[in-house]
Computed example of a mutant assay.
Amino acid sequence: MLKRLLIIIPCYNEQASLPALLAELIEVKIPGYVIIPVVVNDCSTDDTSAIARQQQIKVIDLPINLGIGGAVQSGLLYAAQYNFDLAVQMDGDGQHPPKELVKLLSCYENSNANLVIGSRFIEKEGFQSSFTRRLGIGYFYWLNKAFTGLNIYDSTSGFRLFDRKAIELASVDYPDEYPEPESLVYFAKAGFRIKETPVIMASRVGGQSSIRNFASLYYCIKVSLAMLFSAIRKIQ
């Protein structure tokens, strides 16, 4: 029986990168899966929504800007409501090539993980991000290891696969701001199996990163505190 896979594409002003991304995604065929993309338009001020609709892609237009965490959770709520077997977050800026999707699915099939993270840093191929951002990612590697005991080398990666259990949990409660490092603590505390697999990412095609202040002390402190609170609070 075919598994239904929802591709969640959170977008804020991604009109420059979205046409090529959607065109490539539509061409991806993976045996055993029905792939259905949904664009979560996070109150963009450009033609993001119109471009997606022109390519006959389902669009969720958010009435206010929720940020990356809220946009992803909106997609996960959609996945839960319509009983998808799996969901994959794939950013709308072109950094996550659709052809790499098969690697996440292969890891999921071989490990039966609840969450699979696409990592730039295991085989160190493709776009590796800036030096300052890599320093921050290295910091969150050690912080995540302290809180979870896991070796996750690309804890800020937004290229990730959720199984049905992860969809259900995240649709109820998911970090709203800079969610990737914090959510790993949340999923690990829930007893979920988390795996990381090497992927090749590309540089951003257009638009602006949602974490432009990534290397700032403020960002590191804020996310560190959020991870700490996730580690000590009770899972509902």
Rank of each mutant, 00 (worst) to 15 (best):
L2R: 15
K3M: 12
I7R: 01
P10C: 11
P10K: 08
A16Q: 13
L22C: 06
L25D: 01
I26A: 01
E27Y: 00
I36Y: 00
V38L: 04
N41F: 12
N41W: 11
C43I: 07
C43P: 00
S44C: 13
S44W: 12
A52S: 07
R53V: 10
Q56F: 12
I60Q: 01
L62A: 07
L62T: 08
P63T: 13
L66D: 07
G69M: 12
G70K: 07
G70Q: 08
G75P: 08
L77E: 06
N83S: 13
N83C: 11
N83G: 03
Q89T: 13
G92V: 09
D93T: 09
Q95Y: 03
Q95M: 12
E100P: 01
E100G: 05
L104A: 05
N112L: 15
A113K: 09
N114D: 14
V116P: 00
I117Y: 06
I117F: 10
G118D: 10
F121D: 00
F121P: 00
K124L: 15
E125H: 14
L135W: 09
G136D: 03
Y139L: 12
F140Y: 05
W142D: 12
F147K: 03
I152D: 02
D154M: 02
S157M: 07
G158M: 09
F159A: 05
R160T: 13
L161E: 06
A170E: 04
S171F: 11
P179H: 12
E180C: 10
S183C: 13
L184C: 05
L184R: 04
A190H: 07
I194Q: 00
M201R: 01
M201W: 00
S210T: 14
N213P: 04
F214V: 09
A215H: 08
S216D: 12
S216H: 13
S216G: 12
Y218H: 14
Y218F: 15
C220H: 11
C220L: 11
V223G: 00
V223L: 04
M227I: 06
F229L: 15
S230F: 10
A231P: 08
I232W: 11
I232H: 06
R233V: 13
I235N: 11
Q236R: 12
